[in-house]
Design a protein around this nucleic acid. Structure first.
Lengths: 251, 251
DNA sequence: ACCTGAACACCGTTCAAGT
DNA sequence: ACCTGAACACCGTTCAAGT
């Protein structure tokens, strides 16, 4: 764990997995990778993930947009660095909680980080939210999953699916909070409730029952997590084989 | 079901849920909502979802970009119309298959449509991939879920989670096929396999085992679907209550 | 060695003007 | 009634030039 939140340190060891800072010269530079990432993060928190632009980051730092390219190869790399930066705040799972509770706790941690840094979740869409800052956590997770006999394919999969779920959930909350033009749930419910009840009786009834918007955000987060965890649990008894299917309880 | 694939019909009944075509005048217009949507879809298939722009759609139609705004309120509306257009091709679930097999079939249908229209899946990220074209399918799904006693909250949830999963899976395949700059799986595996084996033994072993990239795309799709379906199945025995948790088999 | 400024090739959207 | 053209306020990225 190495936090970048304290800016301007003597010499933090450069992470080996990224292209190293491009200069180590004599003339003191005004910019640094950390300062660029920090400014990007602040901009995202203020303007949302869609509001991130190289030109606006440069404005925040009082430099020209082109100067950023001395520290960051592209906007895409900057985004990845921001993700690295925030995932660094996620505490790793505690193996002694067992896989189910451990996974739940870890998922909550990630959600908290997204909430702490509003706007970042939008940047995970279409990307695999997996960064070097998570290596230690992933290692622990694999350890625990293997100890209980979870098939590797499924263990790999859970990371993707859960990461996808948490990011999408946080994104939805972000746009709900910032009152974006995206469909607000109450209006969608009213809209669906006004469909012809004879053609869509179940949709109309569900929409009018209020169950589309039932529960707090935290409750709904836990429900979805539960679907995933329950699905995983069932693999402990019935591991998958190639192209096989497992009837469970078909009504 | 009403396909727009045959262009230039006498008078297709205007869908009541969208703002109606803005003109019904005397002078024959060269453009139409359908023509704009069609051109957008073709552009997406050729240039990817990220390649969609109003100006390029206009180019394809031989008109100025500003003229599109007579038929479409914004780029966002155009995207929604494209999604409507392709979801119209999805055959609704067959209730007689039972909920599990019915859901599997329906998920496969949606994936096929994304494959048929490469590039569109990218547009579902950050949106709820739910369109009027799916009302009939959703109604059938709710009917089946309710018949077997699935709690409404969970039934609502499954749509979100499954839609998210299918869209993200299809998107990943799209960028793999078009050889995008995004991380290709084999390289990620090689990369993770070269981490220090003493610090990350499980990651390294998993990466080197080839299980990160194991299975065909179809197999991996089915595995993920299975996690979701298994999770849902467990709710038939243990329905959720507010903020409750259900230990299943903690190692 | 570091940063700037201009330039290139783009965006979505508006709006007065043409036919 | 329909479409165009110019304009506005943006983009990411490159590259020669300045200090």
């Amino acid at each position: 764990m190495f936090s970048m939140s304290q800016a301007g340190q003597p010499e933090p060891p450069p992470p080996p997995w990224r292209s190293a800072p491009l200069r180590r010269g004599i003339a003191r530079p005004q910019l640094s990778r950390e300062r660029v990432v920090q400014a990007a993060l602040q901009l995202i928190e203020a303007a949302g993930g869609e509001g991130l632009s190289m030109r606006r980051v440069a404005d925040r730092l009082g430099v020209s947009a082109s100067s950023l390219y001395g520290y960051v190869a592209s906007k895409e790399e900057l985004v990845q660095l921001v993700l690295d930066r925030i995932f660094d705040e996620v505490r790793p799972p505690r193996a002694e909680l067992g896989w189910q509770e451990g996974m739940r706790q870890y998922a909550r941690e990630v959600l908290q980080v997204y909430r702490r840094h509003r706007g970042v979740a939008a940047l995970t869409l279409g990307r695999v939210p997996f960064s070097p800052a998570m290596f230690a956590s992933v290692e622990t997770g694999l350890e625990v999953f293997r100890a209980i006999g979870m098939p590797d394919e499924v263990a790999v999969f859970v990371g993707d699916l859960a990461g996808l779920y948490i990011g999408a959930f946080a994104y939805e909350q972000d746009i709900a909070a910032t009152g974006g033009a995206q469909a607000d749930p109450a209006q969608v419910a009213a809209w669906l409730g006004s469909l012809p009840a004879d053609r869509f009786p179940n949709i109309v009834q569900l929409a009018r029952s209020g169950k589309l918007t039932a529960g707090s955000a935290d409750d709904r987060f836990e429900w979805g997590l539960d679907v995933i965890i329950r699905g995983l649990a069932s693999y402990l008894d019935h591991p998958p084989t190639r192209a096989a299917r497992w009837p469970v309880d078909d009504g």
